[in-house]
């Protein structure tokens, strides 16, 4: 983990490569989308990922887009992250965001049973929409810090993921626990598939 550095790209999605030149690194551009019902912490995960911060957020309006550069020892990832709103009224536009995605994170809140059920609906929807096999799909149980209020056990999440052939991770955007591991878990197959 120590080798990994974070940089924020401020100039927008089409900017040229990484600012720190490293020897013969590959650059991989990857579109990543966060899905899941309202209030499960998609924006917080995204914020933890991009700025390593946590703060209470208001519900996302529509969709938020940002870019993030991740440098591993031999690969540089340019992530284009689409953080979608979980609210039902925006569902008609979400196909725009997961279309062509290289990585899809389906997030639920371990302290809310309903969000787990919604997550399964998201998975079904993704399956319906020509998501290619190369897409890295991850089931994420967020709010791991609320383990005493847990309504969805680690085991349940795990078996659902195994069932569908997904990666699985329980994280906490609040404490930062397992978030970088989650990103690493995504990076590896992305690297392999391209």
């Amino acid at each position: 983990m120590g080798k990994r550095t974070r940089m924020r790209e401020s100039t927008g999605p089409r900017s040229p490569g990484p600012t720190t030149p490293t020897r013969d690194t590959r650059t991989i551009r990857a579109k990543m989308v966060l899905l899941g019902s309202s209030g499960v912490g998609k924006s917080s995960l995204a914020l933890r990922f991009s700025k390593d911060e946590f703060k209470g957020t208001l519900p996302t309006v529509g969709c938020a887009y940002f870019t993030q550069v991740v440098c591993l020892s031999d690969v540089t990832f340019h992530f284009e992250i689409w953080d979608t709103a979980g609210q039902e009224k925006y569902h008609s536009v979400t196909p725009l965001y997961y279309r062509g995605a290289h990585a899809a994170l389906v997030v639920y809140d371990i302290s809310k049973r309903e969000s787990f059920i919604r997550a399964q609906m998201w998975l079904r929807e993704l399956e319906k929409h020509y998501i290619p096999a190369s897409t890295v799909m991850v089931l994420v149980g967020n709010k791991g810090d609320l383990s005493e209020l847990c309504q969805v056990t680690l085991q349940e999440g795990h078996s659902l993921a195994v069932d569908r052939g997904l990666l699985f991770m329980e994280t906490s955007a609040k404490s930062g626990n397992q978030v970088s591991e989650l990103m690493l878990a995504i990076d590896r197959p992305l690297e392999g598939s391209r």
């Binding site: 924006s43 995204a46 914020l47 991009s50 700025k51 957020t57 208001l58 519900p59 996302t60 309006v61 529509g62 969709c63 938020a64 887009y65 940002f66 992250i81 953080d83 709103a85 925006y90 536009v93």
Partner: peptide, 18 residues
């Protein structure tokens, strides 16, 4: 009102139907 009462545009570029 939309801009003033939302935090999500601060973190990235917002894109929303309105």
């Amino acid at each position: 009102n939309l801009v003033g009462s939302s935090s999500s545009f601060r973190e990235g570029e917002g894109w929303t139907p309105i």
